[in-house]
């Protein structure tokens, strides 16, 4: 099935769901006036369903908008790919969403025009009310093939591996370069679907955790803190890095947290696979690895 056919399916289904009142709006993507850039949009009338698009640039996550503190939209229809479904699972687990208020239209996704989609292992959504089409296993999209995953710099933790390969001083310099260019716009925080605090610690600067000064050192404190806050709940969608206006390679931080969680647990670890699992730092094992004796 072509993207055009899938787009038509989406528009038809969105119009039908809106027309019979099953949902009050559809959260999907629209084309901006610039080629290659789409944006999340909210369609509320059946006749506006023609705004919805589906192509290799329908990249932004739809899930986070439903967790907006002012969300009063009633039952929302949400177009969800694998990554969106992991985000929904994670938000459900954190009691940021109510499942009854969601109608999830599942859209198997072969990957988008973005290198951060390459390691994605969740083409088909994990949670949905209906699936608009079946996953095309033959399609060679963004998913990692078995051989590809082992290639250096191509695996699930490609960005973390890149940094880990450096010596400790070079790692410090790598992040110095990143955080010297950071402008602390917090796009990475705000785009993150699991970053769901009502009030972020950086907005409580009187508490003293985070200086509002913009310099490499204070930006670095923000970067490491953010990694720690969301790392074990990270669904690996890559939005933080994708939205960075300065184009900073920050994905390594959260990838490192996941990688370390796996190493410490001695088992695979992936957040958002279901709406029940506790995050890594929210639980413990009596026989956890211990270097502090």
């Amino acid at each position: 099935m072509t993207n055009g056919q899938k787009q038509q399916l989406i528009r038809d289904r969105a119009a039908a769901l809106l027309a019979d009142g099953a949902v009050s709006c559809i959260v999907g993507w629209r084309q901006t006036r610039f080629a290659g850039k789409t944006a999340v949009c909210f369609v509320r009338a059946p006749e506006d369903a023609t705004l919805l698009v589906w192509n290799e640039y329908t990249i932004p996550l739809t899930a986070k908008y439903l967790a907006d503190e002012r969300w009063t939209g009633g039952k929302a229809g949400i177009l969800a790919r694998g990554c969106d479904s992991k985000a929904i699972n994670r938000l459900l687990r954190d009691n940021q969403l109510e499942r009854e208020k969601l109608y999830i239209v599942g859209l198997p996704c072969e990957g988008k025009a973005d290198e951060r989609c390459r390691p994605c292992r969740q083409k088909t959504p994990l949670v949905y009310d209906e699936l608009l089409w079946e996953e095309d296993s033959a399609a060679d999209g963004g998913g990692t093939s078995a051989a590809d995953a082992d290639a250096p710099g191509r695996g699930r933790f490609f960005r973390a591996d890149e940094v880990s390969a450096l010596g400790i001083d070079a790692r410090y310099d790598y992040w110095e370069d990143v955080y010297a260019r950071c402008i602390r716009c917090y796009a990475c925080r705000n785009a993150c679907p699991v970053c769901s605090c009502r009030e972020c610690y950086v907005d409580m600067h009187r508490a003293g955790f985070q200086s509002k000064r913009q310099n490499a050192a204070d930006n670095r404190v923000f970067g490491v803190t953010r990694a720690f806050h969301v790392g074990d709940r990270c669904i690996e969608c890559g939005e933080c890095e994708r939205v960075c206006p300065m184009g900073l390679p920050i994905l390594g931080q959260t990838q490192k947290v996941i990688q370390t969680a796996e190493a410490l647990a001695g088992a695979p670890y992936e957040a958002g696979l279901n709406a029940e699992d506790e995050n890594f730092l929210g639980k413990f094992d009596l026989d956890d690895k211990d270097a502090f004796m």
Binding site: F228, G231, G252, L281
Partner: peptide, 13 residues
């Protein structure tokens, strides 16, 4: 927490 933090700090140089 700190088994993880230790690794993350080292990752950050």
């Amino acid at each position: 927490r700190f088994m993880l933090m230790r690794e993350l700090l080292e990752f950050n140089g």
